[in-house]
């Protein structure tokens, strides 16, 4: 499953979002964040993002430091904006549309369902809960379990 997704995309995404690679792999099973992001921002931008991240890590930076480096607008504004768009995409399933780049859209229902925002707030996307009757009467699992 998702054999085409490079490891660097997952480690980069993990550093940007604060979620584990395992969670991202589960999301990829029904919503191909990698391919859609590549389609929207171009293979070059995506390659540059991964390369920039990887070389920062190669220089001995932690993944967090490497992510901060990419997000630093004083270094490369375009790249920083693309990275931020990638965060929003993972969190909300919204990405600029190829038809109209000025608006965000949701490529398919599964992207909405897999949005990380709902996990970050210990909840579930509306209309896509996997819980059972009455779960709402008790607090959710610990935040760390959702990451």
């Amino acid at each position: 499953m998702n054999a085409h997704v490079p490891d660097t995309f997952l480690t980069l995404s993990s550093a940007l979002t604060g979620f584990t690679e395992e969670t991202l792999i589960f999301a990829q099973q029904t919503a191909d964040f990698y391919a859609v992001f590549e389609g929207a921002y171009g293979a070059d931008t995506l390659a540059q993002l991964m390369q920039s991240f990887q070389s920062a890590v190669g220089e001995g930076n932690s993944p967090q430091q490497a992510a901060a480096h990419i997000l630093d607008e004083t270094q490369d504004k375009t790249l920083a904006e693309a990275a931020r768009a990638l965060i929003v995409f993972w969190y909300l399933g919204q990405i600029k549309s190829t038809a109209d780049p000025t608006v965000l859209h949701i490529p398919s229902a599964n992207f909405f369902k897999q949005g990380l925002t709902w996990r970050a707030i210990q909840a579930h996307p509306p209309a896509a809960s996997t819980q059972q009757f009455g779960y709402w009467t008790t607090p959710p699992a610990a935040l760390s379990d959702f990451l």
Partner: peptide, 18 residues
């Protein structure tokens, strides 16, 4: 279930999802 005792998902992350 791929992760049967996932505390965030009583469905245990089914595969295939559908």
């Amino acid at each position: 279930p791929q992760k049967p005792s996932d505390p965030t998902d009583p469905q245990g992350r089914p595969f295939p999802p559908y």
